[in-house]
Design a protein around this nucleic acid. Structure first.
Lengths: 199, 199
DNA sequence: CCCTGTCCATACGCCTCCGTATGGAGGATT
DNA sequence: AATCCTCCATACGGAGGCGTATGGACAGGG
C-alpha cells in the first residue's frame, strides 16, 4: 500500500489503478470515484483525466488488474505439492485463512465488493470468468480425487460457496468467526467435511 | 409487490418501508434514495418527509422490517417436523432452494445487499443479530444430532457459509449454478455432505 | 533562448441527491 | 359555511460527483 504520502515525481496510470483497486476493496465500486481518489493521492482530477478518458476506463483497468493478480495467486498456490489430496487441503487452508483478519483490504474483499454490484456491465463478465476458472480448478481436484464428474462439480460448488460465505462472515461479522488457534482447528474440521469421500 | 401503479388514496409509512426494502434487495443500500423511491411510488419527496424525518429513519425501518420478516420465516420453517435430522434437511433444502431464481428481489438478496455495506452504523448491528440468531439455531440442530458443542458450531458455520456463498453465486453468476432437476439433486448431495456424521 | 510536449491545477457547467420551506387540495369537524 | 388537519407538490439551497476547458509549470530538444 504505497500511496498517499510523499512527493512523487509524476503519477502513472498504474498508481491510479492501484488506488482504485484499494478503494474497490474497502468501499465497493461506488468508492472508485475520481475526486476522492485524487484527494487521497494528493492530486486533482486534472491528473486523472490525463491518464484516463473516463471513470469507466479506471474501473475496467482495476478489474483487469485484479483478475490478473488473482490468477497469479491461485497458480502460485498450486504449483508445488504433487499429491492431490494434500494439494487440495493446502489450497483450502490457504484461501480460508487468507480471508480473515484485516477487514479492509483483505484477500477476499474485492470479491465481496464485486458481488455487491454483480450486475454492473463491467463487473459481470469479469466476475463470471474468475468464478468459472476457480470452480473449474476445484472441480478438477475433486475429480482427481476419484469423484465422478458430476459429484466433483457439486463438491467444487460447495467448497467455493463455503469459501465465499466464509469470506462474507469474516468481513461483516468477524466476531462470529473463530480466531487464532480456534480458527485453525475450525478450518481443519471444515476441510475434513468438505473433502470427505464416502463410497 | 404491490407498488408503483394505480392511484392510491394516501401513502403510508409502510408503503415507503416496503419500497425501501425492495430497493435494498435489488440495488443495495445506495438504492434506498428518497427521490428515486418517490418517483417509483408515483409521488414526491413531500410525501416522504411527512412520514419520515430522515433517510436514515427509512433505512432503520426497512432493516427492522427485514429482521422481523426474516425471523418469522425461519420460525415458520421450523415449527413442524419433529424429527431433528429431517428437520435439518428440510431447512437446508428450503433456504438453498429459495435463493436461486429471481435474481432481483429473491430471498437472499437483502443479505447480500447488506453484506456489501456491513460497516454501515445501522446495518452492522442488524446483520450481527440476524447472523448470530441463525447460526445459533443451526448449531442447536447439529447438537441435537449428536455433535459436540464445538463441532456443532463448526458445522453451523460451515452450513451457513455455504448458504451465503450459494446465494452469492446464484445472484452474481447464476449460469454457474445448476437449475431445474440438476439443482434439486445438487442440493441433495450438498446436504448429504453438510450433514454427514462420521464418528 | 525559444518551443514543444508532458503532466497537472483550477474553474466551470451539469446532474443527482439530501433536507427545508411553503403553500395548496380535500376531507373532517363544529 | 368556515376552519382545521392531513397529506402532498413545488421550489429552493447546498453538497458532491462527472466530465470539459483552459492555462501554467517544467523538462528536453532544437
Amino acid at each position: 500500500m504505497d500511496m498517499a504520502i510523499g512527493k512523487r515525481e509524476s503519477l502513472t496510470a498504474n498508481d491510479w489503478t492501484a488506488a482504485a483497486l484499494d478503494a474497490l476493496a474497502r468501499g465497493g465500486l461506488g468508492a472508485v470515484a475520481v475526486e476522492p481518489l485524487a484527494k487521497s493521492l494528493g492530486t486533482t482530477k486534472g491528473s486523472f483525466y490525463w491518464h484516463f478518458t473516463d471513470r469507466n476506463a479506471l474501473i475496467a483497468a482495476a478489474l483487469e488488474r485484479w483478475e490478473q493478480r488473482d490468477t497469479d495467486r491461485v497458480i502460485a498456490a498450486v504449483d508445488q505439492t504433487p499429491d492431490v489430496a494434500t494439494r487440495l487441503r493446502k489450497l483450502l487452508r490457504l484461501v480460508f485463512t487468507a480471508v480473515v483478519g484485516d477487514p479492509g483490504a483483505g484477500a477476499g474483499s474485492v470479491e465481496l465488493a464485486l458481488q455487491a454490484t454483480a450486475t454492473h456491465p463491467l463487473v459481470a463478465p469479469t466476475l463470471a470468468r474468475v468464478t468459472e476458472r476457480r470452480l473449474a480448478y476445484l472441480t478438477s481436484l475433486f475429480t482427481e480425487l476419484g469423484l465422478s464428474q458430476a459429484r466433483a462439480r457439486d463438491r467444487g460448488l460447495l467448497a467455493y460457496a463455503a469459501f465465499l460465505g466464509h469470506a462474507q462472515l469474516a468481513h461483516s461479522t468477524p466476531q462470529l468467526v473463530p480466531a487464532g488457534r480456534a480458527l485453525s482447528s475450525h478450518i481443519d474440521r471444515l476441510i475434513e467435511t468438505l473433502t470427505a469421500i464416502e463410497d
